[in-house]
Design a protein around this nucleic acid. Structure first.
Lengths: 282, 282
DNA sequence: AGCCAGCGATACCTCTGAGGTATCGATCGG
DNA sequence: CCGATCGATACCTCAGAGGTATCGCTGGCT
């Protein structure tokens, strides 16, 4: 199975439409149809049920979509990490650390300072991304290491070290009746009339269905809360980002959030090991 | 990057010889040379230093060898798991569980019975393999789930549940002076004159350098011990396999061995979930 | 009921590029 | 200094990836 075939199949499986998938891939529709047919013939498996009007995935197709994405990420990671290794030999780039924009705002500077103080430390490029994107960046080699937050982010398939834990606070628009409380419970926050939890993208970059506005990063989120259109439960450390129009109230029974440093399991780079060591010593 | 290029590069990187690699791949040497050159050009990276007499990996080449193997395993896993999913729809195969031949001889029957008693349980094919092979089989999709033994086996990149823990015993040839002791320490076992620890294959299937005979499975291992050519420290449960010519003596300060059930992180199959549930209830 | 728009499959052509054979050029062992 | 070994180069062939034109089926609209 060639990566070209996998790319084509993943495109069709995501679009469920040969024409759009072909456009996305920058090829014409007929070769795409043929490539999928050939893939099905070679695997001796029906991946898609096509009824001239609609395309749907078979059970085997679902499996190949999931596994194929992982395989394509692994190939992309091999490509990127090889390029970076070559650059590293000539001296430049160092490590790419990715974290959610707005998160870990206290921990991150401490970590970078501690690592920079190590002998032989390389420059660290900090990459900020939207909610739920880190996993992908780490998996396909665009980042070397990430700060993740359990239980929100999946750490499946990565090596991790725990860095810190904290409770969570509910964020409410200033002036909301509950802002006078000293603490809340989850069921009180869940039931707030007119203040649903916002939805953010899952690992595939799509927004799940349901009520609540869509939020891609913390700026959008805070704005939605200030506008009285949403509420959210976030780690305590988000207090350092609070604006005057948003108020934080501790939520006693919310799950504890653990910040972990995560990296792909095969990584053997000395630079990465040094960063992890610095992190665990904080 | 196409999987063909990755396969070619991995072959050359492993053989460090274009002719032999080409033979292994079933192609002629010139196209292989050209394919590697093209890969290097496309990556803009030198992967191999060739001095007309010898071929060596550059640092970037080492990275691509490691990452490329992982990527090829992921592609192979996508292929195999898709085929199996299609077969599962027509009714046949169930799950493939892999464990070291000779290990978990008590736990395994209990696990299989417990799972078989579940409603909707599928047939489980048990695959026995040599030491250090399970990781590979799980990673490239030939197996769905494995019983691994920490700290011997790496569980990096898999989801796991702990099943049981046990101490370790030293295995000595019958009649050896130390067999009269009630217990030993690691340093006593390490220092046994003429009884080195055997070597077994690492994750790449090669034997590490060093003293001691090579052992591929427990049968070979026991034979070597009975012959007075080696000793070994293994989990207590290996006692059930003891032959009359091999004696087990507890080693108090050897690390505790934990048997875990491990599976690839993306797996979402109901059958696998049922097996893991049965395992954790044991 | 009939027509049209939308979509995947098919037919047929082109040309890239993967693979083969023959050979060169460099290097190391004897 | 010679021959064996090994990777690179030159040159050829052909499988197959991709493009255009078109077909055939289906569902919605008038």
């Amino acid at each position: 199975m060639e990566t070209r075939e996998l790319r084509y199949f993943v495109a069709v499986a995501e679009e469920l439409h040969f024409g759009r998938a072909a456009q996305r891939l920058g090829i014409a529709q007929p070769p795409l149809s043929r490539a999928i047919q050939q893939l099905e013939r070679r695997l001796a498996v029906t991946l898609l049920d096509r009824t001239n009007r609609t395309v749907t995935l078979t059970e085997a197709g679902e499996v190949l979509l999931r596994e194929g994405r992982a395989a394509l990420d692994a190939v992309a990671a091999a490509d990127r990490r090889t390029r970076r290794a070559a650059l590293a030999a000539t001296g430049q780039p160092g490590l790419v650390l990715v974290t959610k924009a707005g998160a870990a705002s206290e921990l991150l500077p401490k970590l970078l300072d501690a690592y920079a103080a190590e002998p032989g430390a390389l420059p660290v490029e900090v990459m900020l991304c939207g909610i739920g994107e880190q996993e992908r960046l780490l998996r396909d080699g665009r980042a070397d290491v990430a700060l993740l937050h359990r239980p929100f982010d999946s750490t499946v398939g990565f090596d991790t070290e725990e860095l810190s834990s904290e409770g969570q606070v509910a964020l409410l628009p200033a002036g909301h009746p509950l802002t006078t409380e000293t603490h809340l419970r989850m069921d009180e926050v869940d039931a707030l009339p007119g203040l649903p939890m916002p939805r953010w993208p899952d690992a595939t970059g799509r927004y799940p269905d349901g009520p609540g506005p869509q939020a891609h990063d913390t700026t959008q989120l805070f704005q939605l809360i200030a506008l009285g259109r949403a509420t959210a439960v976030l780690p305590e450390s988000c207090r350092s980002l609070l604006r005057s129009d948003v108020v934080a109230v501790p939520v006693l029974d919310a799950p504890t959030v653990t910040t972990v440093i995560a990296w792909p399991p095969h990584s053997r780079s000395r630079a990465l090991a040094g960063l992890v060591r610095a992190a665990t010593r904080l």
